[in-house]
Design a protein around this nucleic acid. Structure first.
Lengths: 117, 117
DNA sequence: TCGCTGGATAGATGGATGTCAAATTAGAAG
DNA sequence: CTTCTAATTTGACATCCATCTATCCAGCGA
């Protein structure tokens, strides 16, 4: 289940911060691209709101009118973005969120006052 | 400079919240799609970090190795996502961020504890 | 070992998207 | 009115992406 994390040093400085370099912009855009699909957002929502903190893939296929491979593809994209992490236990695979990744994004949209005076 | 805002009722409930409906997911995904391009992220960054709170389009074209129409296109996407707003004054057009829109996004990534016990 | 099931991968395809060149609109100045 | 500049729109093109079908891999049990 190892998968290269392309977005390691991404973000942390708010969008209104000093200057967003081209490289940082590319990395950040990658994360947002992973979030730019309704199915992936719902998948992430289901995983993030799970009572046990994790969700079996077998429970993620049902709610969607999509084939298994498609769901698998979306989970892979979320995984590559570093937003979720998966583990195989026996026959089933379980996914959970990567908390640091989500809380980091939160700080991006802070605004510095917008003092008009 | 009027432009339909497709994302009006989007967001507010955190991603780890109850259940993300399909419609909400589509709207939210639209906002993230607008943020999923490096050029647009840098544009938003420049606008959000402007001293005066606004930036002339004429100052946004230079930093990029792109043509005017392309920059204009990206600004339109950000505008349609409700992230920025533009105003024409004489010959020039000035863009500024829509603060509510950015601060809203911030709350999306809050996590409820992740209590493993 | 064989077969069954859950999940991932590979390849193909239709639709979306970033980019540019050319044409168009909006103001300002002669 | 004409012309020049700033910015957007239009149309075209290459690329990317979500989805599918078919295939393959990993565990479990008989």
């Amino acid at each position: 289940m190892e998968l290269e994390d392309v977005t390691a040093p991404a973000c942390c400085a708010p969008l209104s911060g000093p200057v967003l370099g081209e490289e940082e912009a590319v990395e950040l855009a990658g994360v947002f691209k992973a979030l730019s699909d309704p199915v992936r957002l719902r998948l992430l929502n289901m995983i993030a709101s799970a009572e046990s903190g994790e969700v079996c893939v077998c429970d993620l296929t049902g709610p969607f009118d999509l084939t298994g491979p498609t769901i698998s593809h979306h989970l892979k994209v979320l995984r590559q973005a570093g937003l979720i992490d998966g583990e195989r236990r026996g026959t089933w695979v379980y996914y959970r969120v990567v908390p640091e990744r989500l809380t980091r994004l939160s700080g991006l949209f802070a605004l510095p006052a917008l003092a008009s005076a």
